[in-house]
C-alpha cells in the first residue's frame, strides 16, 4: 500500500481570483480508494479546489498530480460532476443526450457516438433510476432528477477518480439515499471519490475520509481519526459540537 501512488497529490497549491487568495498553500494527499468529503464554510475554496484539480482554474503556484502525472495526461481517469446550477437546464436536449456526453472524452475529437455509447448511457441511466426519463427534455426534470443525470454522465466515463461538487444540494431524502448508495458501490469497486459536502451530520455515516478546508488546509485523514470537535472548530471558527458517535 505504501509504495502505491496516491490518487491525487497536491503540493503548495495557491489560487486567487483577485487579490485575495481563495486557496493558500494547500498540501494534500488523497489515497486511492477512499470516499472523501471536503467540508468547510462558504467561501472556503471547496469548489475551487476541485476545479484546480481538474485544470479548469489555473493556480498561481503549486502543482496537482493525478496518479503521479499532471491532469492533462490523465483526463480519461477522472470524472467530474459539476454543481447542478452551473448549467442552463433550458438547453434544448434530452436526458439521454446529456448522459451520452460522458462518452465524448473517450471518443476524442470529431468522432460521433454510436450504438456502443448509447448502450453505455442507457446502462448509466438505469443505475441512477432514470431510465424511464431518457427522452425527457432536461428542463422538465426535477432538481433531484437533474442531479442524477449529472451523476449518470460521470458514471459513463468509467473513471478511476470521481470529483463531485455538492451532489446533495437541493435533492430530497430519496435521491440523497440513491446517490450515496451509488457512491458506496463505486468505492467498493476500488474507485476514489471526492465530494464537496455541506451536511456535517452525515459525514461519519457516508464517508470514510475527510478534508477540512478553510482557504488553508486544516486537516485530512480518516473520518474516525480526525472528524472531531477540535478540527470542526478550527475550520468553522466557532465552537462546534456535532454529536459524533464513533
Amino acid at each position: 500500500m505504501k509504495d502505491r501512488l496516491p490518487a491525487i497529490r497536491i503540493d503548495d497549491l495557491t489560487v486567487a481570483y483577485d487579490y485575495k487568495p481563495v486557496l493558500w498553500d494547500i498540501d494534500l494527499i488523497i489515497p486511492e480508494g477512499v470516499l472523501m468529503a471536503i467540508v468547510g464554510p462558504n467561501g472556503a475554496g471547496k469548489s475551487t479546489l476541485i476545479k484546480s484539480i481538474l485544470g479548469i482554474i489555473k493556480p498561481i503556484a503549486g502543482s496537482v498530480q493525478v496518479f503521479g502525472q499532471p491532469y492533462k495526461k490523465q483526463v480519461d481517469k477522472v470524472a467530474y460532476v459539476p454543481q447542478k446550477g452551473s448549467v442552463d437546464w433550458d438547453f434544448p436536449t434530452t436526458a439521454l443526450d446529456v448522459v451520452m456526453m460522458g462518452t465524448y472524452g473517450s471518443l476524442g475529437w470529431i468522432k460521433r457516438p454510436g450504438q456502443k455509447e448509447k448502450k453505455l448511457a442507457l446502462e448509466a441511466l438505469e443505475k441512477v433510476g432514470m431510465l424511464e426519463f431518457k427522452n425527457r427534455q432536461i428542463s422538465q426534470l426535477s432538481g433531484g432528477q437533474q442531479q442524477r443525470i449529472f451523476l449518470a454522465r460521470a458514471l459513463v466515463q468509467n473513471a478511476a477518480i470521481y470529483l463531485m461538487d455538492e451532489p446533495f444540494q437541493g435533492v430530497d431524502a430519496t435521491t440523497e439515499k440513491a446517490i450515496i448508495n451509488i457512491l458506496k458501490e463505486l468505492r467498493k469497486a476500488g474507485k476514489t471519490l471526492i465530494v464537496v459536502h455541506h451536511d456535517l451530520q452525515t459525514v461519519p455515516e457516508y464517508f470514510d475520509w475527510v478534508t477540512f478546508l478553510n482557504v488553508k488546509g486544516i486537516a485530512s485523514g480518516p473520518v474516525k481519526d480526525i472528524f472531531n470537535d477540535d478540527n470542526l472548530t478550527k475550520t468553522y471558527g466557532i465552537n462546534y459540537k456535532v454529536a459524533v458517535n464513533q
Binding site: 476545479k51 481538474l54 485544470g55 479548469i56 483526463v75 477522472v78 467530474y80 459539476p82 452551473s86 448549467v87 442552463d88 438547453f91 436536449t93 446529456v98 456526453m101
Partner: peptide, 8 residues
C-alpha cells in the same frame, strides 16, 4: 451546454 465539463 457545459463549458467547464468540456474542458475536463
Amino acid at each position: 451546454f457545459d463549458a467547464d465539463y468540456t474542458k475536463t
